[in-house]
Design a protein around this nucleic acid. Structure first.
Length: 474
DNA sequence: TTAAAGTCAATAGA
DNA sequence: TCTATTGACTTTAA
């Protein structure tokens, strides 16, 4: 609800005050973990608030989140990153003790924060925690203490080798939900992680460009062609869509922030606005949102243009064909393998094979050999295909590069640990250094938007040809 | 049921 | 080590 910059910053303050008191010392907060009960759903196993907040306060984190004003997620992460790096504190420590998240999640969160208004209640939680942490004058100190304690505990454990589960201190200290004790029997059945080969990724990306929301049939086809499990393909599309979307968010945010560097409105407002605008001008907000049917827009539609172009050929089929084509690049490698396709690929573990997913704990080496593919490169027979691959690839490259830039390096702003009260919230987004990368980003955005339009057109054509109901709002 | 959102956790790279 | 990436899983919404 908070709209005006003013109100948001003010409320931030109040929020801040609300929670500030409860977290005097980290250790206390630690032991205060009992109150986890407040955590509603199933997630209790992990994360569950080890956090330094509400040690005893009546407010649970959920409540705080619920009553939190709009926060400037980008600014918050920026400051957090600064504080962490300035004080040599790791994401793991921070994540586990302050956010109740794993390192990877923290990394992701810090690198690609979604705008506040795009976050669900759950998704806002970490940001509220970060804000609270930033507001805590002793934040760094506490984390340092934690670090020390962890180390001590570790040493102790090591020496006593007793593995009596790092009971005490750990609990008092950061709750090692890390791997720590592996309380239960080691999950014997660990599924090896699937690692998609670059060719496979390329093929999937191409397929995505043609059709961000492939039909089951297409997915099936892709899976078969690439010799991947259907679920892997499905997961890949889910993940890719969602990640692309986030990329767009940050690009928008950054673009927005720099375009109005000097403006006085609140950062939070700005960030959200930026995001909105993007959606807005993609005429349909289509972009980032693109739920299944209603709004297709594929965010990163970079190359959608091609898709659109070709799609017009045939309606529904187009997508499929596209998929087919997309496969070409990757296929060669698969093809090389006799069994790969149809050939009853061992259903037992359909795709496992390829990249070390199989029983073999996949090592780089394995992957290499398995993926023989090898055929791909240099194989004249595949030249045609590879050509298309290359084409596609180049575009990805550019996209990727633009993404790179987009990850703005936090710079100035208010580093200092300690007292960066909410005021910082207001000062965020003042960066101008980003300007340097602006052109690239702009063009990238433009490309994406244009691609979006193409995609829309494409889908409209499709829809029209099959007379399916369309409800596009332009 | 499907897609999105949010995470985990393995692992790739510095 | 630490951070970044990413396939898979879980929860939430529609």
């Amino acid at each position: 609800a908070p709209e005006s910059p003013m109100s948001s910053s003010e409320s931030v303050k109040s929020l801040t005050e609300l929670v500030q008191q409860p977290c005097p010392a980290i250790e206390t907060s630690k032991d205060g973990k009992s109150q986890e009960s407040s955590e509603p759903p199933a997630s209790e196993s992990q994360s569950t608030t080890p956090l330094p907040l509400s040690g005893h306060s009546a407010l649970s984190i959920q409540e705080l989140v619920a009553m939190s004003p709009e926060l400037d997620t980008y600014g918050i992460t920026k400051r957090v990153k600064e504080v962490l790096t300035d004080n040599n504190l790791g994401q793991r420590l921070f994540g586990e003790t302050i956010l109740g998240l794993t390192q990877g999640s923290v990394s992701d969160l810090l690198a690609r924060p979604k705008p506040w208004h795009k976050l669900s209640l759950k998704g806002r939680e970490p940001f509220v925690r970060m804000q609270l942490w930033l507001n805590d004058p002793n934040n760094v100190e506490k984390l340092m203490d934690m670090k020390r304690m962890e180390k001590k505990a570790y040493m102790k454990r090591r020496h006593s080798s007793v593995s009596d589960s790092q009971s005490c201190e750990s609990s008092s200290a950061g709750i090692d939900y890390s791997q720590g004790a592996s309380p239960q029997p080691q999950h014997q059945l660990k599924k090896p992680r699937v690692v998609l080969a670059p060719e496979e990724k390329e093929a999937l990306k191409r397929a995505y460009q043609q059709k961000p929301y492939p039909s089951p049939k297409t997915i099936e086809e892709l899976a078969t062609q690439l010799n991947l499990k259907t679920s892997t393909v499905i997961n890949w599309f889910h993940n890719y869509r969602s990640r692309i979307r986030r990329e767009l968010f940050i690009e928008e945010i950054q673009a927005g922030s720099q375009s109005q560097a000097g403006s006085s409105d609140s950062p939070s407002a700005r960030s959200s606005r930026a995001a909105h605008s993007s959606e807005g001008d993609s005429c349909d907000g289509v972009d980032a949102e693109g739920p299944p049917e209603g709004k297709p827009s594929g965010p990163e539609a970079d190359e959608f243009s091609n898709a659109a172009a070709k799609s017009q050929g045939g309606p529904a089929e187009a997508a499929f064909e596209a998929g087919e084509e997309a496969l070409r690049g990757a296929r060669p490698s698969e093809r090389a393998e006799p069994e790969s396709l149809e050939d009853t690929d061992d259903e037992g573990r359909p795709r496992a094979p390829r990249q070390g997913s199989p029983a073999a704990p996949q090592r780089p080496g394995d992957a290499l050999e398995t993926l023989p593919n090898s055929a791909t490169e240099g194989d004249a027979s595949t030249s045609a295909a590879s050509t298309s691959v290359l084409t596609g690839e180049s575009s990805y490259k550019s996209k990727e590069s633009s993404e790179k830039i987009s990850s703005v390096p936090s710079t100035s702003s208010t580093p200092g640990a300690g007292s960066q009260k909410s005021n910082s919230l207001q000062s965020l987004f003042g960066f101008s250094e980003a300007a340097s990368s602006r052109n690239t980003r702009d063009s990238s955005l433009r490309k994406k938007k244009a691609a979006n339009l193409n995609n829309i057109i494409h889908r409209l054509e499709k829809a029209a040809s099959r007379e399916e109901a369309v409800e596009w709002e332009f």
